[in-house]
Write a protein that binds this DNA or RNA. Structure first.
Lengths: 350, 350
DNA sequence: GGCGTGGATGTTTGCGTTCACAATTTCGCC
DNA sequence: GGCGAAATTGTGAACGCAAACATCCACGCC
């Protein structure tokens, strides 16, 4: 606990009451919008509040009522586009519902001690509910630290956690991306997956496999990247040497950017030689060279849904394991084209 | 105020005390690490806490002590790379100092009502101090809403606000970028500035002008973009038609990306025909096509400094208007080259 | 042996708010 | 004109904790 100097307290309710010539309870009623307060009293009280610069003490309020309207968000990697958009979206949705947000930034969910401290903090602060941005398995552990009675919603969590959850349907996203490449005429589609621990990576991979299967295509070996352009570049350098590889579905837009760079260095043109689809639709994706065909995730919608689920639980008091799925959308741009030599009958060439 | 159902309270201090056979005050002493508690008592109390799953109520604690260790962060545009990195950095620094963070997300500082509400909230919650990510003039208004006695630190604020402030030295950043282009042999440097209200835009512009002045170069007309690739693209389409324009300093990396795209579409090669320097060094900047020369901002350092200034004020109780400046670093990559037709007699090609 | 010292613990009070209840006033209506 | 209901206001208690003060005890020293 940091040692802080003696506090300096401002005016309190009874100060306002004295000034307005009423009881402290009347002030409370005015503040809380109770019905049975006469108009004249109300104006007197409001005037006194303004004159004194009074602001009510929320701690006292929470203590007295036992409920708060703060919700906690536990997130990691908030510098990444996905998580930060999510937090932003939840924040905006919360503001609309007159809730405020305490964001706990975990530096890697595996840091057990850190996530424990953050959850403890949030609970002790009397958070009315918690949202876990939980895109990796390790988040479950942090989530389980929450005492019963505090409603939880996960974002990008797993169904088997038995917890209210909202996710972008990344499986469908993978499906969409892969189908799009197959429909352009490619015999099969290669996949550069995101980090294995992330649920999103796995779901996109499954979507990819499903699309290949339904088209009767053979799944080529899968490369594994991080979320960064740097790791995409590494994978891209390998893929660029494989003549068969004419269509790639990348884990996200930044990975796709890395791949584009690697392809360019090897003299393989996009989309003439290699077609590419990303994921996320970061704002600048359309300005890559060439503009990246990708799958958009509607983060704002995810934020709204997450808040809705949380408010439902708050209202009913039931910890329903209800779920919501947000559908991704394919955004066609310029990185997908038919293969240079349609593989119809001709066989591969070196 | 959202109507929430009846609370459900957990065990309190006296429950723990009863179980451990001591007084509630002893429990408090154990919790706060007071010196004069015997080892046996301490273990008994800790055991009781564990058995009951007790967690102390922070609201009550704040109410009793009058101090909290929550600090508020007021930020807008947290989906942008800069602000989100900043919040992330402050969050990590705060965790280290055992402070927690309440982040209020303002949707555009001009939304007066919203920022007022957020500041009110933060103050009422008893925030020990506030950090304003205040890159635009309008933030001053929000900042002035804070009652005296609550320490404030601004990030990217203005010196004339008479408030503790930490900024990246964007003036020097602009200087560095422009000098780098001039040293490559360009006669002058064009500038695509960021949005006018942002202090960073203005400081970078001034750095640009200063570098031109010191080299005796004439400042060409300045283009104005947003922070997005889309707006950079718009400006780029204009600049691409100006044969004289061989060197550009862009407001940030995404704007630079848009410019690169526009140049490519007009058949102007980078860096052979046009040299380009960005700002920020977003993680993927090195993978643009070609890798973007840019100026890196050390956001993590900014976060640490901001927290340091805040803790100083908290400790001394003085609202010192101390400031910290974080130096940016030029990251040379592949978008800068000598002009095709060197303007000086000496010319060098690789 | 009396007294001081300081460690270990208990008791009381108050932080600023809301809630349950009581008290007062107002008003309608027969 | 009086009675009851509703509107309006006030009073006393919590809420869970930490700070201040009080208490008890063991020990050492002249």
């Amino acid at each position: 606990m940091t040692a802080l100097p003696p506090p300096q307290r401002g005016p309190v309710m009874s100060d306002v009451a004295a000034r307005a010539g009423v009881s402290h309870q009347t002030v409370s009623r005015v503040l809380n919008g109770h019905p049975h307060v006469s108009a004249t009293t109300r104006t007197r009280v409001l005037a006194a509040i303004a004159e004194l610069g009074y602001r009510r003490n929320l701690s006292a309020r929470v203590l007295a009522t036992g409920r708060s309207n703060v919700i906690g968000v536990v997130a990691q990697n908030t510098a990444l586009y996905g998580p930060s958009s999510m937090v932003q979206a939840i924040g905006e949705a919360a503001l609309g519902a007159d809730l405020s947000l305490t964001v706990g930034h975990v530096a890697g969910y595996d840091a057990t001690a850190a996530s424990r401290r953050i959850v403890e903090r949030l609970v002790q602060q009397g958070a009315a509910g918690l949202v876990f941005i939980a895109p990796v398995d390790a988040a479950e552990e942090a989530m389980r630290l929450v005492p019963g009675g505090v409603p939880i919603v996960t974002v990008d969590g797993l169904p088997e956690w038995q917890c209210a959850n909202v996710s972008v349907d990344q499986y469908t996203g993978g499906l969409l991306a892969t189908r799009h490449l197959l429909e352009a005429g490619h015999r099969t589609v290669w996949h550069v997956a995101g980090p294995e621990p992330w649920h999103g990576s796995r779901a996109r991979e499954e979507g990819w496999r499903a699309a290949l299967a339904e088209a009767g295509a053979v799944a080529p070996p899968m490369a594994r990247a991080g979320w960064s352009a740097a790791s995409g570049y590494q994978c891209g350098r390998m893929l660029a040497r494989i003549p068969d590889c004419t269509a790639i579905f990348a884990a996200n837009d930044h990975v796709a950017l890395g791949i584009m760079r690697a392809m360019a260095e090897q003299g393989r043109r996009i989309p003439e030689d290699v077609s590419l689809v990303g994921f996320d639709d970061v704002p600048e994706a359309g300005y890559f060279h060439p503009g990246l065909t990708t799958v958009r995730q509607e983060f704002a919608e995810v934020g709204r849904q997450a808040l809705r689920l949380l408010l439902d639980q708050l209202a009913t008091g039931v910890n329903a394991a209800e779920s919501a799925l947000v559908e991704p959308v394919l955004i066609p741009r310029a990185t997908v084209a038919p293969p240079a030599r349609p593989v119809a009958d001709k066989e591969k060439h070196e």
